[in-house]
């Protein structure tokens, strides 16, 4: 039965069987039903997503006119004809910028403290729990809390005073502040995840060269985790852009962005306005405008904006070639899952 050692390169004359994925034909019926259900849900999810995108595409493009981008909303009886959504777009940009400007440094600093320092441990655990709690708080609750805070007389400079002396409490500042809290958990989570991926030997190498911890963090770690930080910030931004409750309650719900006072930038930030989200809400049957066409058009723009931002996040998290933990075989979706599930 023994063969000589001279290797024959291929089995001449014999049939080669390359087995394919095993069929489920011989499975019991119960198992086959489960298998088909899995396929059905997968296909159904695809169909739903396609339906949503197509629907918004069709409706949005049919009602989208270039003039909408440059005209401010104008109150009129013929809502479907008059005005565009320039102000809401500007409002979205301002609010997102403000919210991110507050949340990004805070979030990164918090994540760095939690990951690199974390003493005393009790404080660290408390902060971790607090961040997790924020992630679970509905944005409505944040909104009405924000109203309470910014209605205090002491903070009247951040919005405007009404005729009877009480503080209005609704402004870009107020909404921006609360939006920052909204985005904080995402930024903290992404930055912590990125920091945990940096191998310890990088830190040790820097300490061995005599660098302080702060210097190490600033000069070594931050450049290394730039994609992770950026993706966290982008996630936070897309969360801010997509939120409506805080805007509805804290931005005053005026059609146009009305500044307060004479200072150029601060005046706008102290004033009220609208964003794309509140614009869509107000123009839908749930709001007062009842102009479906404008709602569709604005919703389409909003959707494209958010999807573009999420695609950017994907590119940032998926583009990394080297992964310290060796989980390079994972799909981006699964990495997204781990990112959100921060423990």
């Amino acid at each position: 039965m023994a063969t000589e050692l001279a290797p024959a390169p291929s089995p001449a004359g014999l049939i080669v069987v390359r087995p394919r994925r095993q069929s489920t034909a011989a499975w019991p019926l119960v198992d086959r039903v489960g298998y088909w259900l899995c396929w059905a849900t997968g296909i159904a999810l695809c169909l739903i997503a396609v339906a949503i995108v197509l629907f918004m595409l069709v409706k949005g493009i049919s009602y989208l006119r270039p003039s909408l981008f440059v005209q401010s909303p104008a109150p009129s009886l013929q809502q479907s004809q008059a005005g565009g959504f320039l102000d809401p777009i500007v409002g979205t940009v301002i609010l997102t910028a403000l919210g991110t400007a507050i949340a990004a440094p805070t979030g990164i600093a918090l994540a760095t403290w939690l990951s690199e320092y974390g003493r005393p441990p009790l404080l660290a655990r408390a902060v971790e729990s607090a961040i997790e709690m924020i992630a679970g708080i509905p944005s409505v609750v944040l909104a009405i809390f924000g109203l309470l805070v910014f209605s205090q007389t002491a903070l009247g400079f951040l919005s405007q005073k009404a005729a009877n002396g009480s503080v209005y409490g609704r402004s870009f500042f107020a909404a921006g502040g609360m939006m920052a809290i909204l985005a904080l958990p995402l930024i903290v989570g992404a930055t912590r995840e990125a920091l945990s991926q940096v191998p310890d030997r990088m830190r040790e190498a820097s300490y061995a060269l005599g660098k302080t911890k702060a210097s190490t963090i600033w000069h070594v770690l931050f450049p290394a985790i730039r994609p992770g930080m950026a993706s966290g910030v982008a996630l936070g931004m897309s969360r801010i852009i997509g939120d409506t409750a805080i805007v509805t309650i804290l931005l005053g719900a005026t059609l146009t962005n009305e500044g307060v006072g004479s200072l150029p930038v601060i005046g706008t930030l102290r004033g009220t306005g609208s964003t794309l989200t509140s614009y869509v809400y107000n123009n839908s049957p749930a709001g007062e405008g009842n102009a479906h066409e404008k709602a569709y058009a604005a919703a389409f723009v909003l959707l494209m904006l958010v999807l573009a931002l999420n695609a950017l996040v994907t590119r940032l998290t998926g583009g990394r070639r080297e992964r310290a933990s060796g989980r390079s075989g994972d799909s981006r979706l699964i990495r997204l899952g781990r990112l959100v599930w921060t423990r």
């Binding site: 949503i52 629907f55 897309s238 997509g242 409506t244 869509v280 809400y281 839908s284 959707l303 997204l336």
Partner: peptide, 30 residues
């Protein structure tokens, strides 16, 4: 899921996660 289907399904799920709630509301009510 075979590999090509898996690669198609993941962006779909990410897309569904990214749609703002007001857009879902609009589709719902209209």
């Amino acid at each position: 899921a075979p590999r090509p289907v898996r690669r198609a399904l993941e962006p779909v799920i990410r897309l569904l996660a990214g749609v703002p709630s007001v857009v879902y509301g609009l589709i719902g009510i209209l």
